[in-house]
Write a protein that binds this DNA or RNA. Structure first.
Length: 526
DNA sequence: AAAAAAC
């Protein structure tokens, strides 16, 4: 293609030897957007990156990262982007979406240089973490090019960002709030921005960003190329696409609200007060590399994270109330494996791409069924088996039903050894009583999927804990009732030595025997 | 109901 220096061997600055080793996701840096470097047998049939029309420096970076075959969205989108067409991509993260725009953007931009305060391209992301992830993508694939990029996000010094902009950037990666702020202060000109990416449009919509996006789009020249990505194509999204795009090439690579078949799921109904203990059992039982634990509330993220740390787990918290520097450093520590468990709000439910994530736990049933799909979609990537287990309380039947309706399949019920399994309460909500709990919940006795009832141990009929009257918690035990203040950590169950998880001794579920690196995730504490 | 995003 165009004339670029075929950098002989520029700083392989990456911390890891940039060897051709295909170690895709152990890398942690999450360019895992591009799955499966080497497909064993049938790879002849697959397209190659080298056929996509990317020039040498970019191809070299791809090679060095060990990727040979583009994913479907990459194979389909890249040629059109290079042609200058608008693209409407319906794809979720994990399908290789990010690289499907970063790679051709690098190609297009590599022809010329940036001018002061006039970014040549703009990428809009709904969260700061996603913005960072895209920036990493540019670092990885652009390492043999001399292009510059800047991250324009809230929570960090504006002075610094301004300075970078003043020097001129090729790629500006931004969250809407800060971008508009800076624009209104006159620190930014978008008149020369001819390439616009609107990523995660459905999420932008959910988050109420659309007016901001419209405002931003109006700052740009109509003579621009626009790439628009969304995980779903609801009518509202379609309307937006019609508004922003010009004769787009439409590419769809995944159906919305589908649960990847590589994810083994399970759900346990337990008392609210037992959740932390139940989670610990699951964390210890599972032979996992790393896990994300989702909570519905920021406050609960903090409480749970502290609790886990207190119990000897390697855990960190992530939600929007934490300082930006902490957010990034926690995420980085998790990606590098320094932290094994990331406890977070829905900030990380979508888009965040962490290579080789083995487990997702829903400490709370998400309020919206689609969020369930997004959350558990963090695992089971790139053809690898992932595990997603959910803890529900007896009054959450409706939420679970909504999920099962959306995904079209029931979540197999599991039991957790040593933790009492309850049933759905008849009462709509929070109203005391429940059906007399029976063991071996009739709810969904026979897992209809291939043995997903992994951590369940049917034999565990000896569930010790005598049934306590649920909801008796009102006064004591730090009941969730009042307590708006961060609940004291001592609300934890006394560190009564959890009984060793039984049931894995003689009957180890098949998925746990899959080859994984043998480091044990969790300090076998206590 | 909750979460995210600007100062």
């Amino acid at each position: 293609m165009s004339a670029k220096k075929t950098s002989s061997a520029p700083a392989r600055s990456a911390k890891k030897a940039a060897a051709p080793a295909p170690a895709a996701s152990t890398d942690g840096v999450a360019p895992t957007d591009i799955p499966t470097p080497e497909a064993p047998a049938e790879q002849d049939a697959l397209p190659l990156f080298s056929e996509l029309g990317l020039s040498e420096p970019i191809q070299q970076a791809i090679d060095e990262m060990g990727y040979r075959h583009p994913t479907p969205i990459q194979a389909q989108a890249i040629p059109y982007v290079l042609m200058g067409r608008d693209v409407l991509g319906v794809a979720q993260t994990g399908t290789g979406k990010t690289a499907s725009f970063t790679l051709p953007m690098l190609e297009i931009l590599s022809g010329s240089r940036a001018r002061a305060r006039m970014p040549r391209s703009l990428i809009l992301e709904p969260t700061r973490e996603l913005a960072l992830q895209v920036a990493e993508n540019f670092v990885n694939y652009g390492k043999h090019l001399k292009l510059t990029h800047a991250l324009l996000i809230g929570g960090e010094s504006m002075a610094e960002q301004k300075e970078v902009l003043n020097r001129g950037v090729d790629v500006l990666i931004a969250t809407p709030g800060r971008l508009i702020d800076l624009f209104e202060r006159g620190g930014l000109l978008l008149t020369q921005t001819r390439l616009l990416v609107i990523d995660e449009a459905d999420r932008m919509l959910d988050m109420g960003f659309i007016p901001d996006i419209e405002k931003i789009v109006n700052m740009l020249s109509p003579l621009r190329q626009t790439l628009f990505f969304s995980a779903t194509m609801a009518p509202e999204i379609r309307r937006l696409a019609d508004m922003f795009l010009n004769n787009p090439k439409e590419i769809t690579v995944s159906r919305p609200s589908s649960v990847a078949s590589t994810i083994v799921t399970g759900l346990a109904i337990v008392d609210a007060k037992e959740k932390r203990r139940a989670l610990r059992k699951l964390l210890r039982a599972a032979d996992m590399q790393n896990a994300i634990v989702f909570c519905n509330r920021k406050r609960d993220v903090d409480v749970l994270c502290k609790s886990l740390i207190k119990h000897g787990f390697s855990a960190g918290a992530l939600h929007g109330d934490l300082a930006q520097s902490l957010r990034f450093s926690t995420l980085e520590a998790f990606k590098t494996g320094e932290l094994k468990i990331l406890v977070c709000s829905d900030i990380a439910a979508r888009g965040i791409d962490i290579g080789g994530l083995s487990h997702v736990f829903n400490f709370d049933v998400p309020f919206h069924a689609e969020d369930y799909v997004h959350r558990i979609g963090r695992t089971g990537r790139a053809g690898r088996t992932g595990h997603a287990y959910t803890l529900a309380t007896p009054d959450e039947e409706a939420l679970v039903q909504a999920i099962e309706k959306l995904t079209g399949k029931p979540i197999p019920r599991i039991e957790i050894p040593g933790v009492e399994t309850l049933e759905w309460s008849d009462e709509p909500r929070g109203n005391g009583r429940r059906k007399p709990a029976r063991k071996g919940s009739a709810a969904t006795p026979a897992p209809q999927q291939e043995a997903p009832a992994a951590p369940a141990v049917a034999a565990e009929d000896a569930t010790p804990a005598p049934r306590k009257p649920r909801r008796a918690q009102g006064g004591t035990a730090g009941g969730p009732s009042a307590a708006p203040s961060p609940r004291r950590d001592s609300g934890l169950l006394p560190a009564a030595p959890d009984q060793p998880v039984t049931g894995f001794g003689s009957d180890v579920p098949a998925f746990m025997q899959l080859p994984r690196r043998e480091k044990s995730v969790i300090p076998a504490n206590e």
